[in-house]
Design a protein around this nucleic acid. Structure first.
Lengths: 284, 284
DNA sequence: AATACTCGTTGCGATGGCCGCAACAACGAT
DNA sequence: ATCGTTGTTGCGGCCATCGCAACGAGTATT
């Protein structure tokens, strides 16, 4: 129902939009309704819902199917959304992410008055794509060249927080062997089970927090950003000296989470669209 | 600029598709190109790429923007894909499938330590929806949207392995006509009967394996993923250099099959629910 | 089994929208 | 100031689409 509802009157002229495009999108809109996306709909039913001629709907759907925007079940003759919509979005999410994230990071900066980062996972390292400071905004390679071991940072833990335990195990295994030798001072996560426990807590809480683990005197929080599939594709991170951010770490975490949800919604994450800031990280 | 993934010839007549729809989708296709998605494109450049009138492109983009399928940067006047596309994509079956499959692919990676893919059939090509690598440099370069000729890959053969022989014949016929000209070096399947035999073997074995057929030095296995109706909707694929995966190809195939069965069970496939013939439970 | 109903597709004529050319407005560079 | 961009907008002719209606196919009803 109703998230992409067409705002104006459907077939009233006045908008400069092309009529054919609008008709096609109305049809796709109906196919995208949650109650219909799973089952599919027939031509007459769509025509009835839209108040259009069924011949028109039939022809339009045939064209949409030919272009991959809709798919048809040959048994029931019902239509569903097609693969091409996915292909469009999938190729673009990362580029779109870096473009759209900036205003959200700025908003978070305005609320917390601390530096914020947009981070993704590359290999077993956390890569920072974008940083926004209270005064200046840096794009790109400032923090980028430095490969930060993922499990030590809140961003890294968030980025793997929707992984299954055994995938988490094999991923963290290599790192833990090296880390056990180095043994950082405040390192809280020393075994795989520690990581699994921490990740479970992150899932429940919605955001991750580290306290002087990565660097002495530094605290930080991170919240996951999900794309239209519901997969975690990035993390928004806030890092600051413990003396400044420490007392408000919980509040910072909740605000980071809220901003991350807004960004997720803009990326098309269905569960995050206009939801209350608690409950439901989509699903598991 | 010779984009291999771009759909059929732009202004070819003969398809019953509406001209306006095709034009709009061509424009969106250009906007979705990875090399352009980051920066965005102007009207003239799109018109030049497509060989269309810029007035037409300008008007079409205005309509697309009004409908939320494209967004415009008011400073540079460049267009990007719009939010509505992502809302649609989130409702696609592929999006749900990808979301559900990701943990299973990661688990398979944890066991085999090789890159795994989730593939679906699109026409006569195999489209990769998601790739997960052992170093977890997923989100890597160029996975989704890349399509390869189906009968040459293990994934493609798995995806058609529940088709009736005559359907298989007519499907492979078109491809074989093209492929006979190209004639890849290690191509084992040269006639329709070869394909039918291979598919029969796949059905009996449960998974497919290719040995340097698609690419020299590359071996791979694939297993089918079925939905609640028992139909094959996707394939899980593992590909790696022959020197690494070759000796354990059989084991990799059985493990891929086991994971694919688990995913099928989650999709509601009744036969895969309790009874897994080759069950490799617990750790690895 | 025959009927009546629903569903989806397809001809066909009239009409309305789109195509392409060209002029126009807004910048920026030389 | 002139030129070269880029993007937008009139305008006429042509063509694709709209809506009606008929048709084939499948299914429930009698």
């Amino acid at each position: 129902m109703a998230d992409p509802t067409s705002p104006g009157s459907p077939r009233r002229s006045g908008t400069p939009s092309s009529a054919g495009l609008r008709r096609d999108l109305e049809i796709l809109d109906v196919l995208a309704r949650p109650e219909h996306a799973a089952n599919g709909l027939g031509v007459s039913r769509i025509a009835e819902i839209l108040g259009r001629e069924k011949s028109q709907v039939s022809r339009a759907l045939k064209a949409l199917e030919a272009e991959g925007m809709a798919e048809r079940d040959l048994d029931s003759l019902e239509y569903r959304l097609g693969w091409r919509l996915y292909a469009f979005a999938a190729r673009t999410t990362e580029a779109r992410l870096t473009h759209l994230a900036a205003p959200y990071l700025r908003r978070l900066v305005a609320r917390l008055n601390e530096t914020t980062h947009l981070c993704v996972l590359r290999g077993s390292a956390v890569l920072t794509l974008l940083s926004v400071s209270p005064s200046h905004a840096f794009r790109g390679l400032g923090w980028e060249g430095v490969s930060v071991p993922a499990p030590m940072t809140s961003a890294g833990r968030v980025l793997v927080s929707d992984w299954a335990p055994d995938a988490l195990r094999s991923w963290a295994d290599a790192w833990l062997r090296e880390a056990s030798a180095a043994a950082a001072p405040h390192q809280h996560i020393r075994t795989v089970d520690d990581l699994v426990r921490e990740v479970t807590a992150i899932r429940r809480r919605g955001y991750a927090a580290v306290d002087e683990e990565f660097e002495v005197g530094l605290v930080g929080v991170s919240a996951p950003v999900r794309d239209f599939r519901g997969m975690i594709v990035a993390a928004i991170n806030v890092s600051a000296p413990k003396g400044r951010l420490g007392p408000h770490l919980g509040e910072a975490g909740r605000r980071t989470l809220a901003i991350a949800r807004e960004l997720s919604a803009e990326l098309g994450h269905p569960a995050a669209r206009g939801q209350t800031p608690d409950q439901a990280t989509s699903d598991g």
